[in-house]
Structures are given as structure tokens and as C-alpha cells.
Nucleic acid binder design. Structure first.
Lengths: 229, 229
DNA sequence: ACCTGAACACCGTTCAAGT
DNA sequence: ACCTGAACACCGTTCAAGT
């Protein structure tokens, strides 16, 4: 069943897609996206940079594979359980996506920067869409709700991870904000400053998620619910 | 009122922040973010690359200034008018943000990649927060709603502009999707494929926005409304 | 078949020196 | 004061040549 010269014979290949993606994700966690270069990755794998191009046509290709690998966590964590209410199931998918992106440094940036259409991403999307369809949403609303939820989640996590970043003039930025606010230029920002500058990102995320879910309840074909969670 | 050697005398400076930002945004529109380099920008301004560092400490600094400039459009377009219902006012802010980001090639990527805290960004945020507070939302909810709306909008527009990009193996991607779907692996994606692959991004955006607004209505202190828009 | 070595065409950023 | 020239320490990607 193997070709004449079996690929398992001869020098064992140092490189393969799976191992390269895992090493790249490790490097991402250690050094961040800006420091993830093809040369550094090649170094980490004991190989010359050019060798990586045997498995990935471009760096963007590699990042796409990394994004899909991350989504594996999300897809596993959110496997539909048929038990909960559709809104709680949907929330689990959104939370699993955020958690998966938070699982790697700059994870949201990697995911947002690629159009991942790998098996994990598709599985995640298929399962979430299934939850909504089985809840009775029409096909087009299920598709659009999928987009709304994932786009909100990536948008939020992008912000969250940017805010967590090593101090890149972050102090100076807060300074500008406080000064402008103190000057009375932005009265509404001044009034809401404690919440705006809060680092409880889970609370921010849960609020936005709740808005989306409440919105979905409102448009649900059998909208017989009345509770606000 | 001017220092001894007035800055308006002598060689007229070829460089200043405002003109540099405008030229950079033009270059962005022509060539995209990946082609926007400090050297190319310097060329466009008839200057050596190093000269740019007199006005911007880093490239990221320049991108932040570009992001705030773009938000000027959004802040102007959404100036509160005191006339409409708070939900319609809020929708105007979200739409103005999307439109402003769509106004420049890779606009969402520039905005999402920077923590803009310039005057335009703050004005936009202050005005939107004001609409929500005057509608009766408590301060913390107004702040969180601001985040939910802007994060959804950037997340959506990021996707939208990525999808509009010149064909970067986009055909191959659609191929993979259709094959996987035809193989019956993703039944729910198959059922929703027409909507999922629709390029009517305005419809996608409006649906997500409606979910958020309906969600806000649900949690509104004086929730006496019942209509679904 | 798989990888090396070396090159090509670039980057962002710094800084002495010129005017 | 403002900008040049030139360098430093890198990039992604390609491809003949080795093993």
C-alpha cells in the first residue's frame, strides 16, 4: 500500500505540518506574533528557513494552520450536549472561542488575520449553526447569528489581548485619557471611567454576549420566554 | 508670542504630523497596509525614511494617528441629533464607525491594531456613551454597551475587508468549503451555505447590530417597548 | 526526497554629519 | 532646526546545489 520507496524509510524528515504548527504556537506563546519569524521558527526546528516552504507556501499559510489548530480547543470545549437550552449552548460556544483565542499569546490577532477554513474551524461553525437551527431559527438567521457571535468574540478578544500586552506606552495613554477627562472635555467618559478602565474583561465579554443572546431571544420564532437571564 | 526664531521663517518644513498622516492614508488606499512602509511613505513625501522619526516615535505611533484620523469621519457622521430614539441614534454611531473603517483600505486592520485614544476616537466614544446615558442606562451598562458595539463593529468590518481583498487563494478556499460540504461532513453549513457565502455584508452587519439593539432594549430600565423594529 | 547555502529585495530604526 | 546618508540588525521568499 506504500509507494515503492516508503516515506518511512531513509532519513526521518525533521519537518512536517503538524509538528511545525505546534512549534510555531509554542514560539508564539513565548515571544508573541511580532517575534514569530520564519527564521526563528526554522531555528527552533533545527532547520534552515527555506525548508519551511516545503510545507507552507507562505507565512500566511502557516498562520492559517495555526488559527485552525487553536480552534480545535474551541470546537472540543463546545461540543453540543443536547442538554442545555439553546441560549446556554450558544453561550458555551462563544465562551469556548474566547478561551481558545486567549489560550495563545496574540491568539485573536492570529485568528482575525487569517481566513481559517480548516476542519476545526468548520466543525466549530457547523456545531454552533446546528444549535441555532435545532432551536428553530431559520437558516439565514442561524448563519447571520454565527457571524454576529464570532465577530463580536474576535473583536472583543482582540481588544482584551491588546490591553494585556506588555506596557507599550500604556501608561502614557491612560495619562492622556485622564487629563482629557479631567479637563471636562468628555463628560460621559468621565462618568463611566471606572467601568471603561476596568480590566475585568470577562464582565465586558459577558455583557456583550448577553446583549446578543437577548437579541436572539427577541427574534426567536417561538419567543415565549420572558426572563432576562 | 513666537519664540525668537519664529518657526514660520527659514526653510519651510516638508514634514508635519497632519500632512504625513494624510499622505499615509492615501498610500494605504492605493497599496494596502502590507505595502505601507516607512520608506515608501518617506518617498511619497520627498524625504528620507529617517526624517519621519522626528514626528512619530515608531511606525505604530503613525498607525495610531491614522486610526484617530479615520475616526474623525465616524465622529462627524454620528454627531448626536437629539431627535431620534436612542436605539436609532446608537445604530447611527455603529453604522458611522463601519463606514469610516470601510472608507480606507484595510481601515479595520489599522483601527484594530492600535489603541487609538486621540480626540476623534474620544469624541466618538463620548457621544455614543452620552446617547446611552441619556436614554437612562446606568453608567456601567453604557460603558459596556459602548465596548460591545464597537467590538462587534470592528470584528465585522475586519472580516468584511478581508473578504473584499484581492484574490489570495480565495477560490481555493471556497473550493475546500464546497467539497467538505458536498461530502456531507458539515450538514448545518451546507444548509446555510447561501447566506454564509453571501457578500451582502451590510445585511450581515445590520443583523448583528439588530441583535445588540434588541438586547439593549431588553435590559433597558424603562423597557416598555415591545416592537422588534 | 528533503534540506542547505546563499542570495534577492526588501524592512524599521538610529544617529553622526551636513546645511 | 530639520533633514541626509549610511549603517545595523533584521525580514519573507526563491532556488541551484548537495546528500
Amino acid at each position: 500500500m506504500n509507494p515503492p520507496s516508503s516515506p518511512t524509510r531513509g532519513r526521518p524528515a525533521r519537518l512536517d505540518r503538524a509538528r511545525t504548527v505546534r512549534t510555531a504556537l509554542d514560539l508564539l506563546n513565548e515571544s508573541g506574533l511580532d517575534a514569530l519569524t520564519m527564521r526563528r521558527l526554522a531555528d527552533a526546528m533545527g532547520v534552515q528557513a527555506g525548508a519551511l516552504y516545503r510545507h507552507f507556501a507562505t507565512k500566511h499559510d502557516l498562520l492559517t494552520a495555526m488559527a485552525d489548530h487553536m480552534l480545535g480547543q474551541a470546537a472540543d470545549a463546545a461540543e453540543p450536549t443536547r442538554s442545555g437550552h439553546w441560549s446556554e449552548e450558544t453561550a458555551r460556544f462563544a465562551r469556548a472561542l474566547r478561551t481558545a483565542l486567549l489560550g495563545h499569546r496574540d491568539g485573536a490577532r492570529v485568528f482575525a488575520g487569517t481566513h481559517a477554513t480548516g476542519p476545526n474551524t468548520l466543525r466549530f461553525a457547523d456545531n454552533l449553526t446546528g444549535v441555532l437551527r435545532q432551536a428553530g431559527f431559520p437558516d439565514d438567521e442561524a448563519a447571520r447569528a454565527l457571524y454576529a457571535i464570532t465577530n463580536f468574540t474576535t473583536g472583543h478578544t482582540l481588544e482584551e489581548q491588546a490591553a494585556l500586552q506588555p506596557d507599550d506606552g500604556k501608561a502614557a495613554e491612560a495619562e492622556t485619557l485622564h487629563q482629557a477627562v479631567a479637563a471636562g472635555t468628555y463628560p460621559h467618559l468621565a462618568a463611566t471611567l471606572p467601568t471603561l478602565t476596568s480590566t475585568d474583561f470577562t464582565a465586558h465579554f459577558e455583557y456583550g454576549l448577553r446583549l446578543l443572546l437577548n437579541g436572539l431571544r427577541t427574534t426567536h420564532p417561538q419567543a415565549h420566554q420572558r426572563h432576562t437571564t
